[in-house]
Lab assay of single mutants.
Amino acid sequence: MVQRGSKVRILRPESYWFQDVGTVASVDQSGIKYPVIVRFEKVNYSGINTNNFAEDELVEVEA
């Protein structure tokens, strides 16, 4: 279970941040499909630095 402030590695192959490390900004408990919002240092092609992920697409590298 990841929690706010954890450092996580992204396992979603189609993601711009695949294999990159980001910080968990928040975790939604309402039961949505992609409840974990992760914030990154670098921006993607659209200038965005956050994205939603499912918990099984993340691996915690640092608490």
Rank of each mutant, 00 (worst) to 15 (best):
residue 3 Q to G: 08
residue 3 Q to S: 11
residue 4 R to E: 12
residue 5 G to E: 02
residue 5 G to W: 02
residue 5 G to N: 04
residue 5 G to I: 01
residue 6 S to R: 08
residue 6 S to T: 12
residue 8 V to C: 09
residue 8 V to Q: 01
residue 8 V to S: 00
residue 8 V to D: 05
residue 8 V to I: 02
residue 9 R to M: 09
residue 11 L to W: 06
residue 12 R to G: 02
residue 12 R to T: 06
residue 12 R to E: 01
residue 12 R to W: 07
residue 13 P to N: 06
residue 15 S to C: 09
residue 15 S to H: 04
residue 15 S to M: 04
residue 16 Y to F: 15
residue 16 Y to V: 04
residue 17 W to K: 01
residue 17 W to P: 00
residue 17 W to T: 01
residue 18 F to T: 00
residue 19 Q to F: 08
residue 20 D to Q: 13
residue 20 D to M: 13
residue 21 V to N: 02
residue 21 V to S: 02
residue 21 V to K: 02
residue 22 G to S: 02
residue 22 G to P: 03
residue 22 G to H: 02
residue 23 T to H: 04
residue 23 T to P: 01
residue 23 T to G: 02
residue 23 T to A: 03
residue 24 V to R: 00
residue 25 A to D: 14
residue 25 A to W: 11
residue 25 A to T: 14
residue 26 S to P: 01
residue 26 S to C: 15
residue 27 V to N: 03
residue 27 V to E: 02
residue 27 V to C: 07
residue 28 D to I: 09
residue 28 D to R: 07
residue 29 Q to C: 13
residue 30 S to L: 06
residue 30 S to R: 09
residue 31 G to C: 14
residue 32 I to L: 10
residue 32 I to V: 13
residue 32 I to W: 06
residue 33 K to L: 11
residue 33 K to H: 06
residue 34 Y to Q: 06
residue 34 Y to L: 07
residue 34 Y to T: 04
residue 35 P to G: 09
residue 36 V to R: 01
residue 37 I to D: 02
residue 38 V to L: 00
residue 38 V to R: 01
residue 39 R to C: 14
residue 39 R to A: 09
residue 40 F to G: 00
residue 40 F to D: 00
residue 41 E to S: 09
residue 43 V to G: 08
residue 43 V to M: 13
residue 43 V to T: 12
residue 44 N to P: 07
residue 44 N to E: 04
residue 45 Y to L: 15
residue 45 Y to D: 15
residue 46 S to I: 10
residue 46 S to M: 15
residue 47 G to A: 04
residue 47 G to S: 04
residue 47 G to C: 10
residue 48 I to A: 13
residue 48 I to Q: 15
residue 49 N to F: 09
residue 49 N to W: 08
residue 49 N to D: 10
residue 49 N to T: 06
residue 50 T to D: 04
residue 50 T to R: 05
residue 51 N to D: 15
residue 51 N to R: 04
residue 52 N to G: 09
residue 52 N to R: 12
residue 52 N to A: 15
residue 52 N to P: 07
residue 53 F to L: 01
residue 53 F to N: 03
residue 54 A to V: 03
residue 54 A to Q: 06
residue 55 E to T: 12
residue 55 E to G: 06
residue 56 D to Y: 14
residue 58 L to H: 01
residue 58 L to N: 03
residue 60 E to K: 10
residue 60 E to S: 10
residue 60 E to I: 15
residue 60 E to M: 14
residue 60 E to Q: 12
residue 62 E to R: 11
residue 62 E to I: 10
residue 62 E to K: 11
residue 63 A to D: 13
